[in-house]
């Protein structure tokens, strides 16, 4: 992704936007973060991978002529004429805590899940999580599946989750839906991924079957 380094090359239509209260004029091909840099505001917080996978750059966006406010990732949002953007601070970490090794067997996962995430079964289906997700994940369905104990299926919905915590911020029941999704994915790996090719190799290594010449 570009930064100031090759910005001189950009020669395109300029648009006017407001970012965190600052009026900025910048080329339309820039993301909200690049637009800030372009205008000389050296933003650091909420800047990360610039590729939409780290979840740092949470923004509120309102487009011209539309009263709706959307939550998006700043690095993935190209500026538009009249757009208003506000960077969000990161929320406090969730209060839910667990260790996979404290779940003794896969038979216990459902019981433990409801102890760790008691709010998950209180979902009032307000849809706030789905509306807030910048990746278009059906978060609410994921929470519902996890609460039913269908963890593999729930986890599959969260493949693209970047843990931006926007759904966590949006949820009035404090479910921490992204952590529910990640829990679902992690227990699936922890209890059910047992590849025979890997296990065979580990056994071989243990028996000393494979050596390398170190000279």
């Amino acid at each position: 992704m570009t930064d100031k380094h090759n910005m001189s090359e950009i020669n395109e239509r300029l648009v006017n936007v407001t970012i965190d209260g600052k009026a900025i004029t910048a080329p339309a091909s820039l993301s909200t973060i690049q637009a800030l840099w372009h205008a000389g505001y050296p933003r650091i917080k909420s800047v990360g991978c610039l590729e939409g996978v780290c979840g740092s750059c949470r923004v509120l966006v309102r487009r011209e002529g539309n009263s709706e406010v959307k939550t998006q990732l700043g690095c993935q949002t190209l500026i538009e004429e009249g757009m208003q953007v506000m960077f969000l601070v990161f929320p406090r970490p969730t209060h839910h805590t667990y260790k996979l090794e404290n779940i003794n067997s896969s038979w216990e996962v459902q019981t433990k899940f409801h102890k760790i995430f008691p709010e998950a079964s209180h979902c009032r289906e307000c849809g706030g999580c789905n509306a807030s997700c910048p990746k278009g994940i059906d978060v609410m369905r994921g929470v519902e599946l996890a609460a039913k104990g269908r963890f593999r299926e729930a986890g599959e919905l969260f493949v693209e989750c970047v843990m931006c915590d926007l759904c966590l911020t949006a949820c009035p029941e404090l479910i921490a839906p992204n952590h529910v999704g990640l829990f679902s994915r992690r227990v699936t790996a922890y209890f059910h991924i047992r590849p025979s090719n890997l296990i065979r190799r580990l056994e071989g290594l243990q028996r000393g079957k494979f050596q390398v010449t170190e000279e």
Binding site: L100, L182, I193, R194, P195, L198
Partner: peptide
């Protein structure tokens, strides 16, 4: 990594 809860792509028999 699997013990940390990381998934990998598996074939139909569950092999990596």
């Amino acid at each position: 990594l699997i013990q940390q809860g990381m998934q990998f792509d598996l074939d139909e028999f569950g092999d990596l």
